[in-house]
Design a protein around this nucleic acid. Structure first.
Lengths: 198, 198
DNA sequence: CGACTAAGCGGAACCATACTCCGTTTATAT
DNA sequence: ATATAAACGGAGTATGGTTCCGCTTAGTCG
């Protein structure tokens, strides 16, 4: 939880100051909370205040609002993807899969307004969907393959399709669906069992 | 093109002044142009200026920005729906269908940011998707039925599904598809011919 | 046709919020 | 302990939404 950097550190980096490091972390945490409560359009001041820093500091680390949003988003995607192997180690294949899908749904549900931001055409978000897919698809594939190997879910479901489906179930969109996303996802998961090898 | 009012006029209306009427029309026209060029987040002042009125006038007729957006949207949906019978009268069934689907695609393509607005959770937009469907589905159904009756397209395609599909092809969304929407729609239309009765 | 009246108009003024700038603070190296 | 440059904070600036109110003018009535 304290370190999301997995890639090799570029030695070119002149080693950030300790307080700067702390502030970046505080900002990400604060932003995550504020975004969840007020949506991604929440005033920057609120985030700065919640993190206990000045707005100047926010802009030092995240020159554009969209940079902050993207950073928070990536952090949460990372957390979600990282949860997959942990669940896989702790549970039976099917249960791990089911738990993770609900975990992913919860993640989507906190994204009030993020879908809107993604659709806004702002080029700052162009890389996000790819990252989204790049991280989550392999995570889900592991879980799915394990469950298929155990013969408890059918083999003809694409990870990407599942992710997309749950994402759209989780965000209320213009389709006016009022049914509980959790129920719908549960239904979807039941569907996975249908036609399993065993 | 000069009259989109189809419903019966409420006699309770105290008859608007002629200049007010003109201004509303000018505003809708200006807003349509500005939205198409700069997206639905375009500054109100720009719209007011383009329409040749003051911002106060905009707010007189459309108290909320979303009211203007909704009005423009409805007007364009009406125009699109009204195009269906005209095309049907002028062309062979398949050609009419194809032309209308492309017409619809063009409509969607001008909606930079509208999808985002719809997803924003603002209750002002809650009624729009229903209106969207209510107007366009019957229009498409006519065209589709005619084409099916002529035996040139398959019979198992739902109007709603087609509308949804084209809408998502037309708006660039987070799926990162870079392929030309026109090409994709053409493909979709070819798909409609597959399995036709004759 | 001219006066009257209120609907309608325009845009200055106000307010909220993104983003910038720069004097001050402070972590770190020597 | 001192130097120094990175980092900080928040006042300041720019932009755009929304309100308010004195002025204009369409429609009416004598």
């Amino acid at each position: 939880m304290n370190n999301t950097r997995k890639k090799s550190e570029k030695p070119a980096e002149p080693a950030k100051r300790a307080d700067a490091q702390r502030n970046v972390e505080a900002l990400l945490k604060a932003a995550m909370a504020v975004f969840a409560k007020s949506g991604v359009d929440a005033p920057m001041r609120d985030i700065a205040e919640k993190a206990g820093v000045g707005v100047g500091t926010v802009y030092r680390h995240f020159p554009q609002r969209s940079d902050l949003i993207a950073a928070v988003f990536q952090q949460e995607v990372d957390a979600c993807a990282d949860a997959a192997p942990i669940l896989a180690a702790k549970h039976q294949p099917f249960e791990a899969l089911s738990l993770w899908l609900h975990r992913f749904l919860d993640f989507i549900a906190t994204k009030r307004g993020l879908a809107a931001a993604l659709h806004s055409g702002d080029p700052a978000y162009n890389a996000l969907p790819a990252y989204f897919d790049e991280r989550l698809r392999p995570a889900l594939r592991e879980l799915l393959d394990a469950a298929v190997a155990a013969g408890v879910v059918r083999a003809d479901v694409e990870p990407h399709a599942l992710i997309t489906a749950i994402a759209s179930l989780g965000s209320p969109g213009p389709h006016g669906d009022q049914t509980s996303p959790r129920r719908m996802v549960a239904l979807l998961i039941d569907g996975l069992r249908h036609g399993a090898r065993r």
